[in-house]
Amino acid sequence: MSRVAVRKTYKLYIGGKFPRTESGRYYPLYDPEGKLLANVCQGSRKDFRNAVVAARKAQVGWSAATAYLRSQILYRIAEMLEGRAGQLRDELVSLGSTPRSAEKEVMTAVDTLVYFAGWADKYSQVFSTVNPVASSHFNFSMPEPTGVIAIFAPQETGLSGLVGAIAPVICGGNSCVTLASETRALPAITFGEILNSSDVPGGVVNLLTGSVEELLPHMSSHMDVNGVAYYGEDAQAIQVIQANAALNIRRVGIYDTVKEDPYRIMTFMETKTTWHPVGV
């Protein structure tokens, strides 16, 4: 008799730990042949709120980390991801991707991380200014992270979209709570395991699985969230996110797809200007 395989339980990733949803709910994901792949956690409002607490706690330390360190940690994620490429490929294929597109998606995710790893200690130089004020002052402006960002990851891709949505946000020193693709949720949780072994402090990236429709009102109206990134084209969802942003003047980024672009980092950065007199 052949050996019985050990299956994996897919849970959430909050504050560096892997809890089940507090709600006890799940939704099944099947492979193209209709075989059960996993009972995925149906994340709840309460899970999101817990994740925001973890993200807030982690954000201060993460933004205080040196740019060099953040750069190395992002690169470390890429290393870990490359090492688990086979597992992620299999998961993507089990969710219906062709082997070729699964391979491409994993490699794109790795390369995107390397791309943003390189930006972590450079965007500040490209987007800062020393301002020649007409008085006797030294005056400079530089980007600082906005804070805690809620991310609705792209639905079509399970991994490259997720990684491409998270990387620019944490590159700048923000923390995030990310809702993974509903139907392609498996690689998200595996990515959580990768983060957990990549020196990313717990809480900097939190991953939820569940329904966009259910979580959207909560994720877009939480008063301790400073920004929302939405990947998609649902006009009604976009309207809700933008209207709820007015509750606390939240920053919003609406995108069709992920992109390697330093301006994506700047969406969730604030410009701070500092003045000091020059004299003796």
């Binding site: 200014t129 301002n131 020649p132 004020v133 007409a134 008085s135 002052h137 005056n139 402006s141 604030e270 410009t271 701070k272 200007t273 500092t274 003045w275 000091h276 007199p277």
Partner: peptide, 18 residues
């Protein structure tokens, strides 16, 4: 905060983001 004045206050200039 977006603008911090150190050892001065309420200074403005067109070259200085606010």
């Amino acid at each position: 905060a977006g603008v911090i004045w150190a050892n001065t206050f309420n200074k403005f200039d067109p070259t200085s983001p606010f």
